[in-house]
Computed example of a mutant assay.
Amino acid sequence: MSGVLRGVLAARSLLRAPAMSQRAGLTTKPAKEPVGAAETAISMTVFMIAILGPSGWVLANLESYKERK
C-alpha cells in the first residue's frame, strides 16, 4: 500500500508546474528629472478632486437621494 501511495505522490509532483519566482521591477536610482513644486501641486489637486469630488457630490445631495419616488 505504501508503494502505491509513494507512486501517486511522485506522479502528482511531476504534474505540478515548476515554482516560479516573482520579482518586482524596483529601482533604487533617483529620478532622471526632479519633480517641481508646481507639478506636485497640480497632481495632488487632480487626485483630490478625483477622489473627493464624487463623495462630496453624494453628501451634498444626500437629501434628494433619500426621497422615494
Rank of each mutant, 00 (worst) to 15 (best):
E63S: 06
K29Q: 14
K69M: 00
A24E: 10
G7D: 09
T45H: 10
A50V: 08
T45F: 12
M44S: 13
K29E: 12
M48W: 13
V46D: 15
M44F: 13
W57G: 01
A17L: 12
Q22T: 01
S55P: 00
G53W: 08
E33V: 12
V46I: 13
T45I: 04
R23Y: 10
L5F: 12
M1V: 06
G56F: 04
L14P: 05
G7W: 08
P30E: 04
M20F: 10
A17N: 15
A31F: 12
S55D: 05
S13D: 15
A10W: 10
G36L: 06
A38C: 03
W57D: 08
Y65H: 01
A50M: 13
R6F: 09
E63N: 06
A24N: 11
E33Y: 10
T27A: 07
R68D: 01
L9A: 11
P30W: 07
A60L: 08
V8T: 06
M1G: 11
S43T: 02
G56C: 02
M1Y: 09
A41K: 03
I49P: 03
A10Q: 06
T40R: 12
A19C: 06
P18K: 15
G3I: 03
A19I: 08
M1F: 12
E33G: 06
T28A: 01
K32L: 09
V4I: 09
L52V: 02
G36P: 08
P30N: 03
T27W: 03
V35A: 05
A24K: 14
L14S: 10
I42K: 13
T45A: 05
R16E: 09
Y65G: 00
S13E: 15
T40F: 07
T40Y: 05
S2A: 10
V4K: 07
M20V: 14
V46C: 13
T45V: 04
A17G: 15
V35I: 14
F47K: 11
R12D: 09
P30H: 01
E67R: 06
M20P: 00
N61K: 01
L15S: 10
L15R: 12
A31L: 14
I49T: 02
A24C: 01
K29I: 00
K29P: 00
P34D: 05
L59A: 05
K66A: 03
L9V: 03
V8E: 07
S43K: 15
I42G: 07
S2K: 06
G25I: 01
G56A: 10
S21T: 13
A19G: 08
A31V: 00
A37S: 10
F47Y: 04
P30C: 01
M48I: 04
R16K: 15
P54S: 08
M44Q: 09
L59G: 02
E39Y: 02
A17T: 09
K32P: 13
K66P: 00
M48Y: 12
A60M: 04
S21D: 10
I49Y: 11
E39D: 12
T45D: 08
V46M: 12
G3D: 15
S64N: 04
G7Q: 04
P54W: 14
L52M: 11
M48F: 15
R23E: 11
M44D: 07
I51H: 11
A17R: 15
R12W: 08
P34L: 02
A50R: 15
A38P: 00
F47S: 08
L5N: 05
